[in-house]
Design a protein around this nucleic acid. Structure first.
Length: 274
DNA sequence: GTGACCACCTGGCCGC
DNA sequence: TGCGGCCAGGTGGTCA
């Protein structure tokens, strides 16, 4: 499932393929993907726009057009493919951007969880969804004081809160397990009971894990691959996630899998005892 | 403001 | 082999 490193990989892959292309037509085959505005308005406004740049904010892909930003969240299984005009549609391709050069960018999503917004450039930072996002992992303002302020009222387990995109963006279920393992923090720990040392470890290990994952092209796990069939390699580096019943790489204890607020969570009871 | 729960979705897996 | 049920999970909405 796409988390920050996977979105970063998609962004870089697409930048090398579609920058400068002008949108001639758009087909929305499943309107539920278009969150804002209506799909009719979406189509009307985006035709004639050129893709000038592609950025990322948290798990959102940001296609910079002439007058708008097209925001795209891949959720669980969203991906982009380049096709030639006239290629037969796959049943899971839901939005198709036709370019003036005869190629097409198609959004494919087997579970239809992904969402798109088309937002005017001058209000992009003050509009949903970007105005509700927290700090990037590499933001200078992400420090112990920031986390302490955000976490002080949170009684939920840290495993749940570390996924909160309004605090730190980009962390999903896979990397959350890895970050807590490296930080030696039990995922059940009440967030407001974490010590400053724990918060510092979360910050450092978030950067470490995500940087390493980006270098390796993200994680290819279960049904997810990146754009254009690009496979990430970080799953080879996962220490606990998806390793239920295997030995902890640090202490040789058995890695267990539990459910915390509905999320599958892998951890080592011996190492993560804080 | 916070936390619990549910809905959105469909492919894969498991048990019968 | 076929069927039904469960699971996976990011996010937003509703309700207490």
């Amino acid at each position: 499932m796409p988390e920050l490193p996977e979105v970063e990989t998609v962004k870089e892959t697409l930048k090398s393929k579609i920058l400068g292309k002008k949108i001639k037509d758009v087909k929305v085959l499943y309107a539920g993907i278009i969150e804002y505005p209506t799909s009719d308005e979406f189509i009307k406004e985006i035709i004639g726009e050129t893709i000038n740049d592609i950025k990322r904010r948290g798990k959102w892909l940001m296609f910079e057009l002439d007058h708008y930003y097209l925001l795209s969240h891949l959720r669980m299984e969203g991906k982009y493919n380049i096709r030639k005009n006239g290629d037969i549609y796959d049943k899971h391709e839901h939005v198709c951007f036709e370019f003036t050069d005869g190629t097409e960018l198609r959004y494919r999503d087997t579970r239809k969880f992904g969402r798109m917004h088309l937002i005017k450039k001058d209000i992009i930072n003050s509009s949903k969804p970007l105005n509700e996002l927290g700090l990037e992992p590499w933001d200078d303002e992400l420090n112990v004081s920031y986390l302490r302020a955000k976490y002080k009222t949170k009684r939920l387990p840290i495993k749940t809160v570390i996924l909160d995109q309004s605090i730190i963006v980009g962390i999903g279920n896979i990397y959350a397990d890895e970050i807590l393992f490296l930080s030696k923090i039990n995922p059940y720990t009440k967030t407001n009971e974490l010590k400053d040392e724990d918060l510092n470890n979360i910050i450092l290990n978030t950067k470490t894990v995500l940087e390493e994952a980006i270098k390796m092209g993200g994680t290819t796990i279960r049904t997810y691959t990146s754009s254009e069939g690009v496979h990430g390699k970080f799953q080879q580096k996962l220490l606990v996630h998806n390793h239920e019943g295997e030995l902890c790489p640090i202490c040789n204890n058995i890695i267990v899998k539990v459910k915390i607020n509905g999320r599958g969570t892998y951890y080592c009871e011996k190492c993560q005892n804080r």
